[in-house]
Simulated scan of single mutants.
Amino acid sequence: MIVKYIQSKFKSVLLFLLFLGIFCFIAYLYHMPADALIYACLLCIFFAVVFMVYSYCRYCQRVAVLRDVRARIEYGPEELPASASHIEGEYQQMIEKLFQRTSAAISARDRQYSEMMDYYTLWAHQIKTPIAVMRLLLQSERQLPSADALQMELFKIEQYVEMVLQYLWLGEGSSDFLLGEVPVDRVIKESVKKYSTMFIKKHVSLDFRETGMIAISDEKWLAFVIEQLISNSLKYTLPEGKISIYADTALENTLVIEDTGIGIQAEDLPRVFDKGYTGYNGRNDKKSTGIGLYLCRLIVGKLGHELTISSEVGKGTKVKLSMAYKTVRYE
Rank of each mutant, 00 (worst) to 15 (best):
E240G: 04
G263N: 07
I264Y: 03
D248W: 04
L238T: 15
L251Y: 11
S244N: 01
T254N: 03
E258K: 12
I262S: 12
S244G: 00
E258P: 02
E240D: 15
Y236E: 10
E227G: 14
I230F: 06
I262K: 11
G241V: 01
Q265V: 03
I262W: 01
Q228N: 15
A247D: 02
I262P: 01
A247H: 08
I257P: 03
G261M: 05
I243H: 08
I245P: 05
L229C: 05
Y236A: 07
Y246L: 08
I262A: 07
E227M: 13
S231I: 01
G241W: 07
I243P: 04
I264S: 03
P239T: 11
S244A: 14
S233M: 03
T237E: 08
L255N: 03
N253A: 10
S233Q: 09
T260L: 05
E240Y: 15
L255M: 11
I245F: 08
Q228T: 15
E258L: 11
I257K: 04
N253S: 14
L234S: 13
E240V: 11
L255Y: 10
G263R: 04
T237M: 09
V256K: 01
Y246S: 03
Q265W: 01
G263W: 07
S244Q: 11
G261S: 04
S231Q: 14
G263M: 05
S233P: 08
V256W: 00
Y236N: 09
S233T: 11
P239E: 07
E258Q: 13
T254R: 13
E227D: 15
S233F: 03
E227F: 01
I262E: 12
S233H: 11
G241T: 07
L234C: 08
Y236D: 09
T254E: 00
L251G: 00
Y236G: 06
I230N: 08
Y246F: 15
G263F: 05
L251W: 02
L255F: 12
N232V: 05
V256E: 00
Y246V: 04
A250C: 01
L229P: 10
P239L: 10
L234R: 11
D259C: 02
L234A: 10
D259K: 02
A247G: 12
K235V: 03
Y246D: 00
E240H: 15
K235E: 11
N232R: 06
I230L: 14
G263T: 07
K242C: 14
K235A: 13
E258Y: 06
L229A: 00
K242N: 13
L229G: 09
K242D: 02
I243A: 03
E258M: 10
E240Q: 15
I264T: 04
K235F: 12
S233D: 15
T237R: 07
T260S: 15
K235M: 08
T260A: 08
